[in-house]
Design a protein around this nucleic acid. Structure first.
Lengths: 238, 238
DNA sequence: CGACATGTTGAACCTCATCAACCGACGTGG
DNA sequence: CCACGTCGGTTGATGAGGTTCAACATGTCG
């Protein structure tokens, strides 16, 4: 009998890709699905969490909050991404569902044991941590050096490339990108180090420029990804 | 005969701490020392590098550059830190000596083999990567949400806590921190997402406030680390 | 319908970037 | 030896980009 994992949407992109079928069966035995609604806390920064998880559906924010209320999103998790600090003790940020979320969870203890048993798994996790580090550093450049317009354009470009293609299947000929924003304006602002007003204004600006269309406030169409990319890098024919 | 590593300054803090004496001897056989002067390129973002290294002496900048010349430092490496992406292929940033630097280098191939042989080593490297990720995310908050004054205060506080204690040994009673800045104003600006002028002004401001003293432009004294910390977090008795 | 959350737009303000002058230290060459 | 240029750093004047405060629009839910 085939493992339920065989039909998993993220089977070949998640950390599970490091495991063969037999090993996957083993992993599957300690796994269980969990759902969260938009806005729910998934991992606290105050008390330790007792599980790891693969993101199956939805988007998760990793966020830092200061005593005075300032917030900064320090990472986003998409389907196939891994949640939870392998090893580690304290969390310096918390995880919250940005959309409705479905996770494939592994109890802490048992997953640690799997890590020890299958070295490929730990290596795969290491690789994904290195990717997170790359992404974080990319974002450091954005936060420190990009203008508001570049930030918003970069954000849209990133979302367009990371979001699993959904809803744009109806016109396979036309390479127009169209997607739903998984984040509110407030979330986007907290991700880009801006205010919601500035985000809103820059979106309007990009629309006027023709770099994007906004059929509704949460839906974005990108007629030409290259144009958006050029705005994102400040490469405006100067 | 004791391994040369026995007297290494970073023996117990670097990744080497994962190895016992015999293993260390093995590692030592593939190691060699390299020196760089301030400003020298250590790892390029264009061509792959053929070695990993422990930082023995000095400070290294990890830096990103955009086509139009904008720069952002995305990480600093201090003695005992590890340089080089275990695994990985391309580098998205380059490494440059911020001060004169001494490295303990390992050839790529052979170090990879050691990683496979001693799983503790890979795990130790994984842990240090997680710490880097934490640091990067901490810095994302700084870049996105802190004011110029908070940024500079945070930077000084970070340096004070990471820099190996040197030169302040003459007054063990008084807990005054005093240290040399390993970075120029331009570097500090690139690390904080500011301009050199703003960095300079904020340093003067902190001096006027009494949060720091500046015996010379590169030497900082911190009479009270708690005061500096409060400025760094915007906790100014509001 | 009203209450509330989300998003847009306008006007005033402020922080920080920009441009520029200046200082001291250092090294070089006439 | 001093004139000179360069480099790192400081300080001032000015202005732009983003924040703040505020009003308004839109959509959803009881």
């Amino acid at each position: 009998m085939p493992s339920p994992c065989a039909h998993c949407a993220v089977r070949h992109k998640s950390v599970c890709s490091a495991l063969n079928d037999a090993e996957l069966n083993h992993l599957n035995r300690i796994a269980h699905t969990k759902r969260y609604e938009t806005g729910q806390l998934i991992m606290s920064d105050e008390e330790p969490t007792d599980f790891f998880a693969n993101v199956i559906v939805g988007v998760i924010k990793l966020e830092k909050t200061a005593a005075d209320g300032r917030q900064q999103i320090v990472g986003l998790l998409f389907p196939s991404d891994f949640l939870g600090r392998a090893i580690s003790s304290s969390n310096l940020y918390f995880a919250e569902a940005a959309t409705d979320v479905e996770l494939c969870c592994f109890a802490y203890r048992e997953f640690e044991r799997m890590l020890a048993t299958y070295p490929g798994l730990e290596r795969r996790l290491f690789e994904s941590t290195l990717s997170e580090l790359d992404a974080a550093r990319e974002w450091m450049f954005l936060l420190g050096r990009k203008t508001a317009e570049e930030k918003v354009a970069s954000f849209l470009h990133m979302i367009a490339s990371r979001l699993p293609a959904v809803g744009c299947a109806h016109s396979p000929v036309n390479p127009v990108l169209s997607f739903q924003l998984p984040l509110t304006r407030a979330d986007i602002a907290d991700y880009l180090g801006l205010t919601i007003e500035t985000v809103s204004r820059q979106l309007s600006r990009l629309k006027k420029r023709g770099a994007i269309e906004l059929p509704s406030s949460r839906v974005v169409r990108v007629p030409d990804a290259a144009v958006l990319m050029r705005v994102a890098t400040g490469d405006t024919g100067a």
